[in-house]
Design a protein around this nucleic acid. Sequence first.
DNA 1: ACCTGAACACCGTTCAAGT
DNA 2: ACCTGAACACCGTTCAAGT
Lengths: 218, 218
Amino acid sequence: MPHRTHLTGEDVARKALEMIDELGLDGLSMRKLAAALGVAPMTIYSYFTDRDALLDGVAQLLYGEIEAPSGSQGGPRDTLIRIMMSVRGMLLRHPNAITLIASRPPRTLDALAFVEAGCRALRREGISARDTARAYRALAAYSLGTAMTEAGRYFTEHPATQLAAGPLSERTITRHLPNVAEIGPYLDQLDDAAEFEYGLDLTLDRFMTQPEASLDGP
Amino acid sequence: MPHRTHLTGEDVARKALEMIDELGLDGLSMRKLAAALGVAPMTIYSYFTDRDALLDGVAQLLYGEIEAPSGSQGGPRDTLIRIMMSVRGMLLRHPNAITLIASRPPRTLDALAFVEAGCRALRREGISARDTARAYRALAAYSLGTAMTEAGRYFTEHPATQLAAGPLSERTITRHLPNVAEIGPYLDQLDDAAEFEYGLDLTLDRFMTQPEASLDGP
DNA sequence: ACCTGAACACCGTTCAAGT
DNA sequence: ACCTGAACACCGTTCAAGT
């Protein structure tokens, strides 16, 4: 039988991503991945030293999906909004891979392209390197947390949202958690994308309209 | 041999949390957990239907660790800051359990106590139920994302921080990612707790000093 | 020298056999 | 009726045997 055409590490990672999207992180196994690629299980180890390295490869692939606009069209602010919306979009397209992203920062040139684009936009606004680092951290945390809670159905499956479903009776909730009960109807009725963009806007305001903002005293 | 004193589901979940803290999420197995408790592996299934249910129990336990101040001392704003700092503290104490939290909202009375305390503080400031829901979502996303990136060493192991270590040479980074290279020195020098509190402050400002802020047009 | 099948040391969970 | 040991169908990874 003829040998398979040579696979690249990226081919392997891409198939792994497909399986994660379809079967969940636990649904991906080295053996099933090998079978899907038509190779012996051990062959995968010639591309990645172990399962952990494979998962890192998948994460880098995902970062590569994020838009990295050159910034030639539209102002720096629009560029940043587009990047962060694209981060959220990528995570929502791959909800099963979110925990992968959470523990693996971008490492490759491709994976870092969106970070470079974002930092460049901030610097072009006259923001200092230090404040650019601060803004990058704040934006990354907010975008990651937003996508995580959305993909994890954190609010749509909230006990306050589905009073009937959970382990607590509606009576118990309204009695012991009156304020939680009160917000329930709103929790899953908000427009996710609009809320996210509103938060981004205000986060950008903090660095763009008052870049001299300091943590140190008055 | 005498039977073990009766275990409760909480005992089982608490031991599981211990093992997760020590060995990581993958290091916890039903069999090792049973051995640590001195029972047969199948006994655990009389407390939790499967591994997933056990992990949910661990998550609820973790939510219970978050402070839920009554608010009798200090203003609503201080109360909220204390709660969110406590959320971050809990997650940083249990970095191996963060992915558990990300996909499992609080469900039990104990686990929801901090949410109730937070919502009550917001409502006492005269913020509407709808805006309280918005603030809760924003604060949860920001706190979760912050703890996740910190515990995942997202910035301290950033290629821009450790120019030598990663797969990219320092030369490659400074040439192709000049703006990323520039922020590197700052990324891991920032004061994590101070940055978080600063972000919380501004998020609270958005809802407290202008509670009428709306997503709808002008 | 390279590749890989079989083997090893684990898993979560089912199920039937024991008390 | 309850509990659980053995069994089943998987794992990731090692390693030696094959080409």
